[in-house]
Amino acid sequence: MRNLFAQMNLLSKLSAVWMALMTALAVFGWLIPLPDPREYDPEASAAGLFSPGHLLGTDAGGYDLLSNVVNGARTSLLIAFISVGFGGLVGSAVGIIAAYRRGRLDYVVSTGFNILLSIPNLVLGLALVAVLATSSDPSVPIASNRRVIIIIIALTVVIIPILGRIARGATLTWINREFVVAARSMGMRDKDIIVRHIVPNVLPAIYSVLFLAVGVVIVAEGALSLLGVGVVDGVSWGAMIARVAGEFTYAPQSMYVPVVVVALTVIACNQLGDFLRGRLDLREGRI
């Protein structure tokens, strides 16, 4: 790990530090003595940056922004990591197996990917949330926890075809290499060929897209919140943006604090993805 860090350029190092910081906030943020993110301070509505007791100020309703950023990191990154991790795993596995088997399975799978990819991320996520997370009785809203789970599922479905198509394409470039034919002629089973020869060669392509996908999901979560189907009543970066969307002229920091946090996180993800791709591509990385 230290070795990897040493090879980074300045921008990648900053990105790694930022992502580490955000991850740390997500995991240990609740230990920091901050005001409750959902409790407003009646004496400090729309406080500016560096106000006493509110380092990043408050929004028009008097909610502490730093506390929301720190506690929102938990929800936002949880959604991003789980949906990208799970979606990446499923998508890659399906893509690799489809490309390896070819034939009808491949046809069905790539058609499925193409159909999902042809629907804009946001519309797809919106449709899934709308179907899965609507309450039949308007007076009993869906619980915040369940909303998070449903958003994770929706975003996983968004991620699967993205990763799946990358994995399928990368697999196709390796499948006809002579070392795969050689392995088969030596009597290697298909399962071992995939695990030992295909997966390690396909992974670099997947890693870089995984990081990009984290960025995509963080933005999608924000967008869903803005449209009113995110974790609206919960604490997340998207919810922060959504809550102040109509009133940010009174307290501009309430908008740009979460936006800057989201933007930096997405940029850091892209940068790390780029770095990893270069590092893991043997021809580019080592010679």
């Binding site: 290499r177 002579e178 070392f179 034919v181 050689a182 392995a183 002629s185 030596m186 290697m188 060669n201």
Partner: peptide, 27 residues
């Protein structure tokens, strides 16, 4: 067993020579 035409493509670039030559024995 078969020896292939393209010597570079017939060896997995991610594996060490030890792993490559040992592979049939491993299988």
């Amino acid at each position: 067993q078969m020896v292939f035409q393209d010597p570079i493509s017939s060896l997995d670039p991610r594996m060490t020579v030890r792993a490559l030559v040992e592979e049939p024995l491993w299988i």
